[in-house]
Amino acid sequence: MATYSTNEFKPGLKVLLDGDPCVILENEFVKPGKGQAFNRVKFRNLKTGRVLERTFKSGETIEAADVMEVEMQYLYNDGEFWHFMDPNTFEQVAADAKAVGDAAKWLKEQDLCTITLWNGEPIAVTPPNFVELEVVETDPGVRGDTSGGGSKPAKLETGAVVKVPLFVQTGEVIKVDTRTGEYVSRVGK
């Protein structure tokens, strides 16, 4: 089993902590005047997204986690699982609701997502930063109002609800930033 020693710790390293895959966010080497050195390390748990802090004696080792991030195409949802395919190898994986999490509301068939695989199993799904989705339901806006200055909720084809300017109409396609959940622009057809 591969292990990493504290002097190999660096941001981005994937390790196993209490049986869960984690990524190192920050690593600070601390050494008192004439005392035992230690490392204060911040991790993100890749399954839960929670940030945690741990302290290690310098020289301690922790187990490496077999974690990979792969670009995959979203295929379909069978009611229980979301299915993705690697467009290069045509290999498919099925992610459950826990792994997909909030990404579910942005997933449109054919879109490329980043899938985090741990020992080959999907544990997290990151949607593209920007998605283009059709508005399926919104109040009719005020005609000719293209200046912005007001907003209204709009339901998109994936079920997500975002705030849009008043001039956006049902049936139009809009661009949304999935990291903030905010409307970016209309997309011309």
Partner: peptide, 8 residues
């Protein structure tokens, strides 16, 4: 030996 970090 082994001391490497922001202040080492």
């Amino acid at each position: 030996r082994g001391d490497i970090g922001r202040l080492h």
